[in-house]
Amino acid sequence: MRVKVKELFSQLKSGLLDQNPTFVQLLGLCPTLATTTSVPNAIGMGLAATFVLTCSNGLISLLRKFIPKEVRIAGYIVIISGFVSMVQMIIKAYFPELDKSLGVFIPLIVVNCIILARAEAYASKNPVLPSLIDGVGMGLGFTVALVIIASVREVLGAGTFGGIKITPAGYEPIQMLIMPYGAFITLGFLIAAVNFIRKNSENIKKSKADSEKEASNENSVLKQESEEMEINDTDSSGIVIVNPNKDSNASDSEESVSDKKDADKSETVSEIKDDGDDKEGETDV
């Protein structure tokens, strides 16, 4: 059951970037859209959710062999709502203003689908430490996403950042961005930007992987197979294209086919495959 530090780190990174709950998985959109009217609100919401997510992930992971499968969702909800009550009391006691501006969205963390999704998809199948790290990564990813959305909306829509006026005197704020439909438009643009960045970085990674593969193709068949297996094991961010179960002939033909297709198409296909492989790999740990 020993877990490598490198894997934990890559898992933290996947929560922040590759599997970002807001921009990539599109989970928990209701609080995302509703609480991002100002930066302090976004930070408060994000950190509250991070706390709940980390704690519930850890506890659920501890109890994963104890909770019967049939009632697991109810069990998760009880655990999550316990932590949410704690957060709510803390916020009420120490940050009454934040409590007022977030209002009903703090108790609604209970039904935030990020938390339930991580409990169901990850914490219930993995040991405690990776689950905690997963909670921190996903929570911080959520917080960062909220802060980015809120910065855009607050600066352009109200002319302030964290309540301090930063725009020049002549600037007349675009009130539409503070309104609900402004949230949707902002989110759409940011998702597009994140997709663009991810695609670009994957293109670079892919070209690297391709060159590695070409180099390995020159070696003997056995060596090649073993190398690919290695790549599949070590790299968890999902770049590997060749399935280790297939023999070398199959991999060659696959390569030629993918060369003929558009670069984009083959990439998305491989991406999906890899994600699947990845998750399986993680659960085996």
């Binding site: 007349e172 704020p173 675009i174 009130q175 539409m176 961005l177």
Partner: peptide, 8 residues
């Protein structure tokens, strides 16, 4: 037009 109602 609806967007411009940002500047009511």
């Amino acid at each position: 037009r609806v967007f411009l109602f940002s500047w009511t």
